[in-house]
Computed example of a mutant assay.
Amino acid sequence: MIRRWPVIVSAIVALGALSGAAAYQHVAPGQDEQKQRERKGDWQEIAWPFPRDGWPAGKAFRCGAAACGGALELYLRPKLGFCNCDRGVTDDDEVDRVADLDLMSEHFAPLAPGDIVRLADMPGRIRAYDLKMSDGSPHIAVGVAVSRRCDLLVAVARGRGDEPGMRRAALAFLATSEMTRWMTVAMEGR
């Protein structure tokens, strides 16, 4: 009986160590997810809300009012083989045509001339719009179209906040390393 005690004690210590390691592994991912959410500024991925069209569905995200200065949704997707291969996106008319604003509302009007923008090392343009939704409610949208070779990447941020704040929040999120990686891979057609 005395010879068994060291074996029993060793087994209890080993089981305790294993259960402690397992408990740590279950706690750690939750903490990592929380830190990742804080870095992303409370952006949460949501389902692509639009019906199918000639292009594949993209990614959609929502940012809460507290984190983004008003509830904000962002939609982005590649449109491979849809760009002027020589010039890329060089004018506001092209942003108006390709930025998927028509998926949200048929009634949109530019607020001002657009600006040059760069996402994931792709040049293009960004422009703000006044959107009138089907229920009559006013929204602001920020449309982005950037290109690489003959391919487009389009993004639209939509919300009720002020346009400069929406633009800053959307561009900051799109500039995160996670989104830059996704855009790069999506533009390569993988």
Rank of each mutant, 00 (worst) to 15 (best):
L131E: 12
M104G: 13
A67F: 00
R127H: 06
A28T: 11
L171A: 05
L153I: 09
D42E: 10
C85V: 10
E163Y: 08
T180W: 02
D96A: 07
G159K: 02
Y75R: 02
M122P: 01
G161W: 09
G70V: 12
G54S: 10
L174R: 00
A145V: 03
I46L: 08
K59T: 14
K59M: 15
L171V: 05
P78T: 09
A175S: 14
K40T: 14
R168F: 13
L119K: 05
E94F: 00
E45S: 11
W48I: 09
Q25V: 13
V117S: 06
K79H: 12
L174C: 05
D151F: 03
D53I: 11
T90A: 12
E38H: 11
A112L: 14
D130V: 05
P6R: 14
A186Y: 00
D32C: 02
A11L: 15
A17D: 04
V154G: 07
A57P: 15
A112R: 11
G81D: 07
D96L: 04
M187C: 06
G20H: 02
V9I: 08
L103Q: 14
A157G: 15
D130T: 03
I140L: 11
K79F: 03
R148M: 06
D93S: 10
M104I: 08
A67W: 02
P110Q: 06
D100C: 08
M179Y: 13
R87M: 09
A175Q: 15
V98I: 10
V9P: 00
G64H: 01
A60L: 01
L15C: 09
I46V: 08
R127S: 04
R149Q: 07
L131V: 10
F50L: 12
A186E: 10
L15Y: 01
E106L: 15
